[in-house]
């Protein structure tokens, strides 16, 4: 309502202004009254835009299938030659540009309490002098870069489920560079688009180029399950976003029979069925918890009846 009202007034002002000042004139004159009016209108306009823009913050989480593989490095074997960086940019960008390579090899040098002076922070306060290799971890959902991207430009690669930047959608806003907790998104200064490791269609060129067999392409496995659970839940999502999590991460249980039927219909009709993860088949437990005691009771009744009739 408020938005529509301002727009209307906006239109009127536009008309009344036109005789006085050319709308697009390079050197417009502006009276004090006009300054106040336009200034006030723009304040109102921006404050109305606020909630409209804020709607973006409540959009649902993007759920992505886990990647099928990722590249891992063995730092004990790496000699720091940087051929992987060359191979990466040569294959993906057609140029030798290690600075924007998706695999980032560097030396963690002793450069004072702030760590390495370049883009990477040191391990702890003091660099340890080791060669470090960093690669996209192909995060399971919530994928930080995919969730933050305002253009939904980070998509699943057709093979291997790697998270890749769709260059047609990317506008080069660099917000994913900030969202990635590992700082693994690269930016191509020539095309002005973000880019990241997409596992080269399942045949990573860095792995092929490594002369020391330090890099290997391994199946992606969620090892976070092996980490002992934390005492306190440190990750706090805003409640409106955590709704999306609770839909999938139920304590293992289910909703009802109709969903099962829906899923079965999905199978019969073909196409993508209702995600089975959305429910855990509680009705099976219900049926079992009725039938099992019933079986025990009838068996006992059989035995008792046998004894009674024998007398």
């Amino acid at each position: 309502m408020a938005k529509r009202g301002t727009m209307g007034r906006h239109g009127e002002k536009k008309e009344s202004l036109e005789p006085d000042v050319g709308w697009f004139s390079l050197n417009p004159t502006c009276s004090r009254r006009q300054t106040l009016k336009w200034g006030g209108l723009s304040v109102i306009g921006i404050s109305v835009l606020g909630p409209v823009l804020a709607q973006g913050a409540t959009r649902p989480l993007i759920i992505m299938e886990p990647a099928l593989g990722l590249v891992v490095a063995d730092p004990m074997k790496c000699v720091g030659c940087g051929r992987c960086e060359l191979a990466c940019t040569e294959f993906n960008d057609g140029k030798a540009a290690p600075a924007m390579s998706r695999i980032k090899v560097g030396r963690n040098l002793h450069f004072g309490p702030d760590g390495v002076s370049a883009w990477r922070e040191g391990q702890g306060n003091w660099g340890n002098g080791l060669v470090v290799q960093d690669l996209c971890k192909q995060c399971p959902h919530p994928v930080p870069c995919a969730n933050i991207c305002p253009e939904d430009a980070i998509v699943l690669a057709p093979s291997g489920n790697a998270r890749m930047v769709d260059p047609d959608k990317c506008t080069g806003c660099k917000i994913c560079l900030r969202a990635c907790p590992w700082e693994m998104i690269s930016f191509d200064p020539d095309s002005r688009k973000a880019t990241k490791c997409h596992l080269c269609n399942g045949k990573p060129k860095c792995v092929a180029a490594c002369p020391a067999q330090s890099l290997s392409y391994v199946p992606w496995r969620d090892l976070t399950a092996r980490v002992p659970p934390r005492l306190k839940n440190t990750v706090q999502l805003p409640s409106e976003r955590s709704v999306a999590c609770r839909q999938c991460h139920l304590p293992g249980q289910t909703k009802n029979v109709s969903q099962g039927i829906e899923m079965f219909q999905g199978w019969v009709k073909g196409g993508r069925p209702l995600s089975a993860r959305e429910f855990g088949f509680k009705w099976i437990d219900l049926a079992g918890s009725i039938l099992l005691p019933l079986a025990v009771v009838s068996v006992v009744a059989h035995a008792v009846l046998r004894k009674v009739v024998k007398r």
């Binding site: 099962g260 995600s275 089975a276 993860r277 959305e278 088949f281 099976i284 437990d285 079992g288």
Partner: peptide, 14 residues
Amino acid sequence: LLWDVVGALNAIHV
């Protein structure tokens, strides 16, 4: 993962 049958397998198993 492709066919999304984790829940269905679970149901059959149980």
